[in-house]
Every structure is written in C-alpha cells, then in structure tokens.
Design a protein around this nucleic acid. Sequence first.
DNA 1: GGTGGCTGAGACAACGTTGTCTCGCAGTGA
DNA 2: TCACTGCGAGACAACGTTGTCTCAGCCACC
Lengths: 343, 343
Amino acid sequence: MNDVARAAGVSLKTVSRVVNGDERVSPVLAAQVHRAIETLNYRPDVGASTLRRSDRRTETIALLLEDVGNPFSSALHRAVEDEARAHGVHVLTGSLDEDPQRERELARAFTARRADGLIIAPVSTDQSYLTTEIRSDTPVVFVDRPGTGVPADTVLATNVIGAAEATRHLIRHGHREIAYLGDYTRISTARHRQEGYLQALAEAGIAPDPGLIFTDLHTAVTAESTIMALFHRPGPPTALFTSQNLVTIGAVRALRRLGLHRTVALVGFDDFPLADLLEPAVTVIAQDPAMMGRIAAQALFRRIAGDTGPPAEHWIPTTLVRRGSGELPPSSPALRDRPSSSL
Amino acid sequence: MNDVARAAGVSLKTVSRVVNGDERVSPVLAAQVHRAIETLNYRPDVGASTLRRSDRRTETIALLLEDVGNPFSSALHRAVEDEARAHGVHVLTGSLDEDPQRERELARAFTARRADGLIIAPVSTDQSYLTTEIRSDTPVVFVDRPGTGVPADTVLATNVIGAAEATRHLIRHGHREIAYLGDYTRISTARHRQEGYLQALAEAGIAPDPGLIFTDLHTAVTAESTIMALFHRPGPPTALFTSQNLVTIGAVRALRRLGLHRTVALVGFDDFPLADLLEPAVTVIAQDPAMMGRIAAQALFRRIAGDTGPPAEHWIPTTLVRRGSGELPPSSPALRDRPSSSL
DNA sequence: GGTGGCTGAGACAACGTTGTCTCGCAGTGA
DNA sequence: TCACTGCGAGACAACGTTGTCTCAGCCACC
C-alpha cells in the first residue's frame, strides 16, 4: 500500500480511502491511485484490515458438520454458502466424524481465527465449552442436533413427529410387527426418532417388541447384516422403519438379498438420491437439509447483526413421501417364515 | 495478551513465547502465564499473528468447486479436508456453478484473504488472471479440469481413455449404433469424453452418426427429454453412452418410462450412489474423486513447502465397473422400433 | 579475578491497515 | 477584508502479535 501511495504521489491514507470507496476523494486522485494499484498489482490484505477495523469482522463464518462428503451435510453446506454469499461472507468448513474432541478442536481453531459466527451440528454431549466464545460475541447456531449447556439458536427437524408419522403410516397399512432400526443412541436425533416410533405404537395400542428394536447401527453394512439375521429368526416383522439414510440403504440391500423387497414394507427416515428409481421405490420421511442450512445461516446473520433476543428454536418440518415400499400390505406369516423360498 | 502479561507479572514477549511453546521459558513463569491465560480466557488472535510472522502463513487453503453440494465435489472436498487436517490447515470453500465471473471473484477474495494456496476446478476458459497470484507465491492446483494460460499442477481423470473404454465395451457386446449424450461442450472434460467415444468408434471402423450425438445436456431433466425424443424417432440406437452423472440418471429415467431399461444398453461416465441397486444395475466408468482431491492437496502442500519444479500433470485412472446395463446385447430392430409395446 | 559464553527475559519496532485528529485552502456572507 | 464553514488530504497512532536486539545474571575456564 505504501508503494501504491508513492507511485500515485499521495498519502497512505488516501490509498486506503480509495480502496474502501470513500466518496470524499477527488476523482483525479482516485484515478491516479487506481492506476497505481493496477500497475503494481496491489491486493489489499484482508487480515491486516480486520485487525485494525473497529468492527473486527472477518467476513467469514465457520460450519462444523458431520461429514462434508455426505449428502445431508453437503446439501446443508450448500444452502449455508448461498446465504453467506448474499452477505458477502465466506465459509470455513470442517468434518467432525462423530468425534467430540474434533468438535472442540475445530471450534477452538475457528474462533481463534475470529470467525464472525459458528454453525455447528454437534456431536459431543456438552457444548458448555462455547460459553466463553458466545459471551465474547461470537454467535453460535446449532443445526440438526440441539446443543447442550449453552443457550443458542437451534434448527431442528421434527424428528419425533416424522418418525411417528412413518410408523403410523405402516400401521395404517395393516402392519403390527414393525421393526425399528436406528443409529447410535448417543445421537439425539436417533433417540427422538425412536421416541416417535414408540409413540405411534402406543397410540395404536401395540406393545413394542424388544426383539424388533435395533439401535447403534451406523453404517449400511451393519444394518444389512442385522436385517439378514433378523429374517433368519422365527417371527420376523412385516415392516421396517429405518431411522437413518445408510441404515435404509442397508435395509434395501438386505431385503433384495432375501428376496423380500416386494414383501416386507419399508419406510426410511431421510430421503436419498434415486430412492424413487429403486424397485420398489422407497417411501421416506424427507428432511429438508437445504432449508435447515438456510434458516440456520439466517439466524446466525441476525445474531451477527446484533440481535440479542432469547435463543430461538426453529423446527423444520419433515414430509412423508409415498413411493411404494411403505405401502406394501403385511405378507402372510407362512411366506415370511420361509424367506429364502421367494428368492 | 497485554492483560495476560500483566496478570502473570511478565512481559508481553514472554506470554508470546509461552503461547508458541518456546522451550526457553522457565517452568515457573510458564505456569504463571498458563494460569493467567486460563483465568482471563485469553485466545490468541491468529490474524494478528500471521500478520507479524515472517512466513505469513494463514494455515488456510481455498477450494473452488463446481458445487459443494454435488456428490463428486463433496467427495473431493472431503479428501482435501483430510489431507489439510494432516497439515494442520483449514479449508475455505466456494461453489462456482459454471459461472466464470464467480470463479474470478472467489479466487480474488481468497487470495485477498491470503490463503496459503488454491485448489480450483476451473469453469472459465482462461485462468491467466491468476498469473500475478502465482508469481507472488500463492500456489494453485487445478483439479478435474485443466487450467489455461497459467502454468500450474493439474490433477485430471483419464477422460479420453475412460470414455473410449466405455464405448469399446459396448462395441464388444455387439453394439454399433451407440448414442453419445454429453454435457456443455465448453467443459473440457465433456469434450474429452466425446473424443474418447469417437476414438473407439474409429478403431472399430464405425462411422459416427451425427444423429446419435447429443451435447450440451447439463441436467437430468434435459437428458431425459432428449432421450425420450430420440427413441420416438426412426432408427434409434441400441446403446447409450452418457458422459456425465446427471445425464446418466436422466437416461435411466427415460429408459424406464419407455420400458427399454432391459433392452437398451447403457454405460455412464462417473459412478453414483445406488447405481448397483437399480434394475438393471448401471455399468459405469468410475472416477475416483477422493483420490483426485488427495493428490491435488498433496501437490498443493508440496508447492507451499517450497517445491518450485515444473508444473506436473497427475492422471487419475478411471475404472470400468460392470453391473448389467452395459452388458445387454443389441435388441432386434423390430423391438426397438416399437418401444411402447414393451411398456 | 577477569573474560567469555550461555540462558532467560524484556524493550522496541514492525507487519498492513484504518480511526482520529489536524490542517490548508477555497468558497461564503457580513 | 475577515472570520467562518466545509471539504479534501495528510500525520500519527493503534490493532495484536512476533522478530530482533539488548542486557543482566550465572557459570566455567584459564
């Protein structure tokens, strides 16, 4: 900037004014400065600028997600980026992989970088370590899962309601033996979906069968083998409610291998690409990750702008998408008990 | 930091030494400083630190992709993040949406932020605007598509070879009327895939039929309607080579609607989730976005570390994944000419 | 006992900007 | 003509760090 000032024959401060679009610089000088900037290939240093500026904005927000590579996270990421772009703000991202320590490290690293705000899909059980940051004016918004131990805006899908709707849908189609297959119970969304499942059973006066409830399934592979085993036991269910993406896909694979994909009903929580092209197409409770990201970013920018109201909870509704797999009627016990015959 | 120094009864510089893990501070003083840091909740300011440090590293790299929400980009993103994590570096991301101006803006913004390096999947036809940045020691690596007008490392899939392999595979199964369905010709990968297709036809002595070559298809919807129209004309092909993800999915939808999914052979370029669960499962030329991201990041970190060798080209091989749709034999002309009969 | 080297710690300036204050000068009205 | 106003532009300090220089104190060696 010094070089530019010298080349243009003006003071440092005048260059600064031109760079920041200050109106009160005479057009002649401004043109000289622009020429000098051009020839010297000058690029302002945003870091030095934010250091000196009074508002201390870095025009950067941080986004901590489960895994930027998975469809849910990346759809959410994209929506946050779009909202950030509208504010002229850039996005730092990090994947947590269900690792609480990683969550802490990244949150620490991003606040040390003076991000203007944080959007977190938390994986640890306690976010009180963020208290200091929030107090020192770095707003935080939780998305997909609630934060604990610290007051902050939260954006959540209606997990209980959605899971209950899925289960009710199966009951309405005549099923009473409905298996639940869910993720790690330490994940709050998994617990809520299980809760919705139990609620719907209770409403219908169906006693939950502990032999049909499977938790702590996290990958398609574990889901697939669990379901394979389930159908090789006496008294298998007539329907499955899978409470997570990968579990649903594992279920599709298992039912295919068993030859039961047209026999056993299936409703999955969370939509996935090509669900409509499978045979039968998979009925799901669709979440809206894009809307979740958008709402979370909007909430964050309100806080950054100075909103100091009490923490808000935003509930993003889920939608039942009927595609075929969830509308199959219960099969006869005889058929169910000899699954391999239908292969 | 001043407050910490005062609270610990030491000089500013000693706090700096403790924060940076300088060995030559006596344990007694270091403990005092750590206590003061704890009670005052002091967080070092990374921005100020990089401003003063001699190496000027921000420990941040920028990643410009087509769309962080699509599977190819997000898999690549994840791999870059993993490599960056190993170097203690964070990642700024941006989506370009095939918009050349956006590419320029983001590259400019990220270099103004003094990112240590850039990984770009370019969308504009000329990257010479980056010359200055590269000269001023901000390395750039191009990924997925080559950069133009500026020397830099490049990581590319073997598009020509892969496309030729796909086409040869169909020829080997008896097809001679093979349609090509590709993305915008302004995208270099699309041009290369078309080139591979033509090469394989030439090898086999098949004259390309202009009526079977469709370009500038970018979405599943346009691909679907193009293919619908194609099969309502006389002399439809017995096989399709779709040179992009969304086009492949559009093709699957179209063939389903036409009832031709078990009749017309299909090979797609680029794998996609659940391709193996469709009926028939879709044969593809799989790219390896994770490897592309990893290699690109490794190349970038070598440059950041000071490597000044000539620009390198890294070719990431593609793999033919046989799943069924690409192994269908040519159907009889009679059948092909009355597609609706097989619905 | 004097010299030299080593070690731990502080003083000071500087990184690239911008907020604040000041000042010169042209234009205005009495 | 003179004070007054307003506006464009420069001087200076400061943002939160760290590189460099300096120095006091200690030990060792001849």
